[in-house]
Design a protein around this nucleic acid. Structure first.
Lengths: 151, 151
DNA sequence: TTGTTTAATGCATAAGTTCTCACTCAGTCA
DNA sequence: TGACTGAGTGAGAACTTATGCATTAAACAA
């Protein structure tokens, strides 16, 4: 049971669906085999600065990290761990999921490295598509990104 | 006793200083002659969508108009038929063409389903790129989307 | 190995927020 | 006029989140 991994899953869950309480989040995590108490989630939310936003439709949590992540251009290593959510690969492609609004800065940081293994990046709001030169190149890059994420 | 006036003052107070609880806010309002209970403030906060952001330094309220812009997310089934235009596939990819400005909401709706077959989506203005886990996954998704479109 | 330190966590409960209900008051209409 | 309606509110119950303290596990030094 790993704190980093858990916090990453929390970011992702919160980015992709409305969650109305820490207890609800706790259940979603439990379904994924991450069993912790609400106390721990309260502390995670603080670490991640996850905002709680009320509205007529109910309460919702939102990652507030993204807002403060775009100060100038940061190095990949400095922002990737904070913004990263998940990574998948298929063929020569890598799909990186990030917290809300995290895709743009990460893609920019990757681009600016000028790695020839990377043919290009396309970033949406919380998803980056990385097109690699070959499957071998894709493997190298994915490995490196995963290592970065673990920081 | 005027609600609008009070809510205006709340916005102002929250913008200009760190406020850590509704009780604290209540006192500040009382000093200004606006006497209400914390219950009322809770309702005001909801009306104004004032976010509560925790951090190692304590809790703080912030006007959250920007952060809460994603309320009222529609289900895929409810919007897809209206916005869909055309669909093509290649390898693990699906390219969905939509009516102008339709890509963003559809991509969001797809994301929020959390389907593991879908590694990620990237949306432009009227085109969505869907990256699937495999060609088989791509087939399943494409079939489903086409069925949805026929509604 | 043994002791020490530190991070992570659960438990119990304190602190804080939201909700339900009842009430008031102003406006509307027959 | 008198009944009705809806917005706004307070009081306290119900619910949610934060925190103090104790425990455990891991890393490290002696």
């Amino acid at each position: 049971m790993n704190k980093q991994e858990r916090q990453r899953v929390i970011q992702e869950l919160i980015a992709t669906r409305p969650i109305g309480s820490q207890e609800e989040l706790r259940q979603l995590l439990a379904e994924r085999g991450l069993d912790v108490t609400q106390s721990t989630l309260s502390r995670d939310m603080r670490d991640l600065r996850i905002a709680r936003i009320p509205s007529p439709a109910g309460i919702r949590y939102t990652s507030a990290v993204a807002a403060s992540a775009d100060e100038g251009r940061a190095t990949l290593a400095s922002i990737f761990p904070q913004l990263f959510a998940r990574l998948d690969v298929v063929g020569e492609l890598i799909v990186v999921k990030t917290v809300v609004a995290g895709a743009q800065p990460i893609a920019e940081a990757i681009d600016s490295e000028g790695n020839p293994d990377v043919l290009g990046t396309i970033a949406g709001e919380n998803t980056i598509l990385l097109i690699c030169r070959s499957e071998a190149a894709r493997e190298r890059i994915a490995k490196r990104l995963l290592a970065l994420a673990k920081r």
